[in-house]
Amino acid sequence: MDCAYFDAWRCRSCTLLETPYARQLAEQQASVERMLSALAWEPPFASAVAGFRNKAKMAVAGTVDAPTLGILAADGSGIDLQACPLHERPIQDAMPVLEALVREARLTPYDVPSRRGELKHLLLTASPDGELALRLVLRSSEAIARIRKRLAALLGALPLASVSVNLQPAHKAVLEGDEELVLHGGTLRMRVNDVPLRLKPRSFFQTNTAVAAGLYRQATAWIDEVDPASALDLYCGVGGFALHAARPGRRMAGVEVAAEAIDAAHESAAELGLDVAFSVGDATAVDLETGAAPELVVVNPPRRGIGPLAARLEASAARHVVYSSCNPVTLARDLQAMPSLVPVRGRVFDMFPHTGHAEVLVHLERR
């Protein structure tokens, strides 16, 4: 991938960019295999090397008349990265329109050193169908009326399925606050393997749609091979694994702490005519010990891993676990806490080319 920002030393986030991609993939696979031995490994799932990222998280800096959309330098000044080649084309094409919105709506960029200003971040997500969801992270509600005034023009310029404002008044390294105001739409339809997932403003989704689609296909293939009568998707988000693996006669459920994500999962299940029991709850507190425990459990936790849930899975009646991890270090730790659930096969999915990050899918079987 050619990147003028990298070559000019304006952004060095893609730390492995100078390493040929085939070598990146091979070294990533070797690193994961060292941490997770004794597995039968499928070939790694490669990504496109550019234009793969479906979400842009742009810090806004500079001035109202000359804003920067990109990242912040160590001194808090802005580094403009509007043409970042990692982003999907609809995101790159939208950046000049969003820069114009900052100027025309007089959205004063937040200045970190002085703790002054209003607009902190622009978050833009693209769907496979080319639609966009925009979130503006503001320090206060002061600018909302001006954004509303320009909303019609914005909708005319961009294929926006959702526009919302998030209020984050605190001066700390937290991307978003607790209050979200939807100005338009509110849902981005994310079609993955013909499964119509739905993203609300706060919903989590993998940043690489093509690789996420491969991840869901692989997990579903392993689940169908085992063919459990019951399965539970923990940390289910908007229902990606559960909706892919739902089958007639298979009792499927999903648990997620975010109510907004569960609402989205219900909507997708209804469209597909699937009977999946999605519910809001703490994945670590789900009943796994009674006779109603599922035969198979899918876990897709955050980077910290499943923690105390590992011991409960070890003591449960579940015969199989499919573990999707974005952190091989915590995955290895969690596997050690489940000695009766033996990892039998795995696959590396390169969600984040040009970095050392890896997504790993592992199938565990009780022995």
Rank of each mutant, 00 (worst) to 15 (best):
R217I: 04
K172D: 14
V299P: 03
A311T: 09
V174E: 15
C84Y: 05
L313Q: 09
R251D: 04
G240C: 05
A332K: 06
E256L: 04
R10N: 04
A152T: 11
G273S: 10
D111H: 15
R115Y: 05
A74H: 11
C3M: 03
L361C: 11
V49L: 05
A269H: 06
A50N: 10
A332L: 05
R116N: 01
F241I: 14
V276P: 13
D263Q: 12
I79G: 03
T284R: 13
K57D: 10
N300C: 05
P67R: 07
M35K: 14
H184N: 10
L215A: 11
L151T: 03
T290A: 12
L341E: 06
V97P: 06
A153D: 13
Q218S: 06
L69D: 10
V362Q: 04
K57H: 14
L313S: 03
P196H: 08
E260K: 01
Q28P: 00
H363A: 14
I262D: 01
F352S: 01
G273P: 14
E142Y: 07
M1Y: 03
M190I: 11
L243F: 07
R202D: 13
F45A: 15
R217L: 14
S164A: 15
A73G: 14
G239M: 04
T108Y: 01
A48S: 13
L134H: 07
V297Q: 07
C326K: 00
L188I: 11
E104I: 05
